[in-house]
């Protein structure tokens, strides 16, 4: 917009862009994050402790790893509520394989493969029949977890090779940095580059803004959606490996209800649920906001259900905030300057 008005006073433009940054979603999130950190460290002396902070990441990094592909899914205008069930399914398959004496390498392969297969099935039904993603993944959410229940019933798999424990419990070298955390940051950078710096990323935004227009401009809409759902399955499989390795056992109710927390994280991170808008950085901040908020509340003995009230309120307030700010913001700041 600034390019069109070459005659504008440069100082005014700088002022505007500073103001725009102020109102940007990521800035608000960063502000919330700092608030959470300050409040938490005031409430409990155990919050600002390097070991504690590092170890608490174990509790939310698995969800965070699924949140990354979920950004793509939601930007496309779709949704996937079967991710937690895919975790259960992969975990059960890994448990069966482990019972049969498969080694760590084989278990990882099985986890990743079963996750991708489940994701592919979702994507295939959605794109082949043109059914809304919420309906299909609602069904597969029951189906996948249901298969886990059929296989396991009320039993549990608890026998896993010792070397398998590294993925969910291991640290990098002698530092206190968890392997999971590093893995997450690497994935976040990869997904960020794909979303914001490649043609693929531009196409994802195009699909989310207007999928019909995207198709007419030559974008293979359905193939891209199929790939995204498969990758979401793959990442759920990966999260399943990490989670199973961390808790060392598999029950059919593993990761129950995670899908809602993952979607909450993504939406709080500024991804529009209607599609077409969002970025990785916002979601990464939102992951840490929710993670540290829960950690801080845990330190002062807030029960989990009460934490959920606060997360729910945070979600609704966060979505309402831009509308409220729009009303507070001076109207038509650009058109005033044009005059």
């Amino acid at each position: 917009m600034n390019k069109e008005n070459g005659v504008l006073d440069i100082k005014k433009i700088r002022k505007i862009s500073l103001l725009n940054i102020m109102w940007q979603w990521e800035t608000i999130l960063l502000f919330i994050f700092i608030m959470v950190a300050i409040i938490n460290s005031n409430l409990s002396p155990y919050f600002l402790d390097y070991t504690n902070l590092m170890n608490t990441t174990f509790n939310f990094i698995e969800k965070a790893i699924i949140a990354l592909p979920m950004i793509f899914v939601i930007i496309c205008g779709d949704i996937d509520i079967s991710v937690a069930s895919i975790i259960a399914l992969s975990s059960v398959f890994m448990g069966m394989a482990s019972q049969a004496g498969v080694n760590t390498f084989g278990l990882v392969a099985i986890g990743l493969f079963s996750g991708s297969a489940a994701g592919f099935l979702n994507g295939f039904i959605i794109t082949k029949f043109g059914i809304p993603a919420i309906a299909v993944t609602l069904g597969s959410m029951s189906l996948f977890r249901g298969i886990a229940y059929v296989i396991l019933g009320d039993k549990a798999f608890t026998k896993y090779p010792t070397s398998f424990a590294f993925f969910g419990q291991g640290y990098i070298g002698n530092t206190m940095i968890p392997f999971e955390l590093i893995l997450f940051f690497i994935l976040a950078i990869i997904f960020g580059i794909i979303l914001h710096k490649t043609t693929m990323g531009r196409r994802v935004f195009a699909i989310g803004n207007n999928s019909t227009a995207a198709r007419f401009s030559g974008i293979p809409v359905n193939r891209i959606r199929l790939i995204i759902f498969t990758v979401t399955g793959l990442c759920s499989g990966l999260a399943s490996i990490l989670l199973t390795s961390r808790i060392g056992s598999t029950r059919p109710n593993i990761a129950y209800g995670w899908e809602l927390e993952i979607i909450t994280t993504v939406v709080l991170g500024g991804v529009a649920i209607t599609g077409g808008k969002g970025n990785i950085f916002g979601v990464v901040i939102s992951i840490f906001i929710i993670g540290f908020l829960k950690f801080g509340m845990g330190l002062i003995n807030v029960p989990g259900k009460v934490m959920n009230i606060i997360i729910g309120l945070l979600l609704i307030l966060a979505i309402m905030l831009p509308e409220l700010l729009k009303r507070l913001k001076p109207k038509n700041s650009f058109s005033n300057i044009k005059k």
Partner: peptide, 30 residues
């Protein structure tokens, strides 16, 4: 929340789902 605050229904009810469930817990104290 849906009609006045213009929050999409799926998000609104995702939020109130946690809130109402939490309130049940607060009411009965577990």
């Amino acid at each position: 929340l849906v009609s006045r605050a213009k929050i999409p229904p799926i998000i609104t009810t995702l939020g109130t789902m946690s809130i109402y469930r939490g309130l049940v817990f607060v009411l009965c104290g577990g």
